[in-house]
Design a binder for these strands. Structure first.
Lengths: 111, 111
DNA sequence: TTGACATGAAACCTCTAGGTTTCGTATAAA
DNA sequence: TTTATACGAAACCTAGAGGTTTCATGTCAA
């Protein structure tokens, strides 16, 4: 029985990673933390547009923000991607039994 | 240098899995092949609506269809999810070094 | 051959995603 | 204390996503 909150968070993650711009932002933030302007400089769109993408990423818990003076520093919180990995792992059995079995074994070991 | 086709296919996959109804359809088809009516019976929406979702899943190469008389049998092609797994694997390093290293080792072994 | 069934296709509707421009405000710097 | 900077918020626009109803067509079954 999955509680509703879990479902909605899961959906927010899938929604967040669905957009190519947002995945690109994640790639940027995987190298270093950045404020809004730094992120926006990498795209051919206005700053408010990028800010909206960041909002969606935040809703999906894929990034976090800390205030630093007048800047807002964004950093990646990639642990949230485990949600996707968990979903994916169910389908692993269909395309790579060897790997998925091993992966499950390791995960069990980690608990 | 990723060719454009790859990018677009990748985007089609991410788009396909972004919708909860479509992920549920994938879950259904992971148990057995089904025709349109069988799939649609599991949802509180009209058959044409479900047919549209199937179209998106086909665009993302996540399902395939074969004609059988007047029916169209849909089956899951989960190998396509490797696209997502590959994308995810880059972020593995940030949340589980032990597992991701092992995973990479196994994948290299499989090539 | 006639009727029921499985589906595709098209026209339409509504809402939202993704973008823009404009303006206001807090902070830093001169 | 001005002035420039970094940003949020709001109003707006457009295309497309996700749904509906209606109708046409090929196939199976009686």
């Amino acid at each position: 029985m999955k509680p509703k909150g879990v479902i909605m968070v899961e959906q927010a993650v899938f929604r967040a990673i669905a957009d190519p711009t947002r995945r690109e932002i994640m790639g940027l933030l995987s190298t270093r933390d950045m404020n809004l302007n730094e992120i926006a400089n990498n795209f051919d769109m206005t700053r408010p547009a990028v800010a909206k993408h960041l909002r969606v990423l935040r809703d999906g818990r894929l990034i976090s923000v800390r205030q630093h003076g007048r800047e807002r520093i964004h950093s990646l919180t990639p642990e949230t991607l485990k949600t996707v990995a968990d979903w994916l792992s169910y389908y692993d059995q269909f395309w790579d039994d060897k790997l998925s079995n091993l992966k499950r074994a390791v995960e069990a070991d980690n608990d």
